[in-house]
Amino acid sequence: MIQFIENPLWKARGAISTIFFCYGLTFASWASRIPSIQEKFSLSEAELGTLLLMLPIGSFISLPIAGYLVAKWNSFLVTRLSILLYLISLIAISLSENIFLLGFVLFLFGLMGNMVNIAINTQAVSLEKEYKKNIMASFHGMWSLAGFFGAIIGAIMIGNEVILQYHYTIIFSASIVASVISFKFLIKSETDENEDKPIFAIPDKPLLLLGIIAFCSMMCEGTMFDWSGVYYKKVVNAPKDILGLAYTFFMVSMAGTRFVADYFTTQFGVKKVVFFSGVLNFSGLLILILLPGKIISLIAFFIIGAGVSSVIPLVFSLAGKSKTMSSSVALAAVSTMGFFGFLLGPPLIGYLASWLNLQVSFSFIAVMALCVTILATQIKSNSNS
């Protein structure tokens, strides 16, 4: 038992899982208080949508920066620095007293979030190579689990009228302690032979394909994060006391499926798992749009959660094994496209809902899910590991 605990691979896996959890908890803490921020600054839906655009802009700007820094300094250093700055930016959100300062801080929040995203996924890819088997989905399961707990904590804070500064200070304090403890167990050097690969390069066709799949899938995921409760309320007409079930069914399904996704990938291969995930996602959204009943909608949210769960871990894992550029740069390209979709989806749905209606706007997300299914057929069939 002691040898098991002392195994450096298990220590690294625990440390990387911890950073994923803190990363997810921080983002969920921000997202859970969006209504509080909207109320504080008296923002309309369109104004809120514009404000939310600052995150994907920051994320997009970080693309060349993050890939370069991880390739140049290695993910060990960038992970430690970026998670600290990401946590500090969460505190800065709560201290912003005007909309312009908040917009700038959200830009930094998006930029640092993608830095963490690229650096910690590079760590995960390196460890996966050491394990010589699929373990990426379990790390993303920790992110999802943190998102679930972050939403619950946020709901409790709102219910007890805890101000934003106190809420975010609690999250910051717990996450900073956990992150710092895990730092010394992170992988200190990548196994990737990056010296033979360019730091800057235009993504080739396979990487571009993975990036588009990530974009479509994470747009669905981001929409569920911010709009599932609103949809359940306004379209399904669910009573107030069960509105949280929509998000809960989605998150429980997504987190749970991620913890078993590595097994199914080993059994059936990446191509089949991504294809079937797209089918599940599209089917769930179709049910949600066409049959918006209280019970069947919860089943649909559960199906959607299972559909989006495996796509991102698998495409990130494939990107990290790129033979044309370093792992960090390949991950930067693919993960930034995905994260951009994740952050762009919610404000886009807000705009579409204001022009049309929420139910019709979700049809656009269903098209994104269908794109995942179609594009999955183009993944190289030898990408099974």
Rank of each mutant, 00 (worst) to 15 (best):
Q3Y: 14
G14C: 14
A15L: 15
F20A: 11
F21H: 10
C22N: 08
T26K: 05
W30L: 04
L43P: 05
E45C: 08
T50A: 12
M54T: 05
P56N: 09
P64V: 12
A66V: 12
A71E: 13
T79Q: 13
S82D: 08
L84C: 14
L85M: 13
Y86I: 08
L87E: 01
I91Q: 00
A92N: 03
E97K: 09
I99D: 11
G110P: 15
G110Q: 08
M115R: 02
I120Y: 03
T122C: 02
A124Q: 03
Y131C: 07
I135S: 00
G147D: 09
I152R: 08
I153E: 05
I158F: 12
E161K: 12
F172D: 00
K184P: 05
T191E: 15
E195G: 10
K197Y: 15
A201D: 10
L207N: 11
F215M: 06
C216N: 04
S217D: 11
G222A: 07
T223A: 11
D226Q: 06
V236L: 14
M251R: 02
V260K: 00
A261L: 03
F264V: 03
T265D: 00
T266R: 01
G269R: 08
N281L: 13
G284A: 06
K294D: 09
F302D: 11
L318Y: 03
K321L: 09
K323G: 07
T324G: 13
M325A: 10
V334F: 06
G338E: 04
P347T: 11
A353L: 15
S361H: 10
F364C: 01
F364L: 05
M368T: 03
I379H: 07
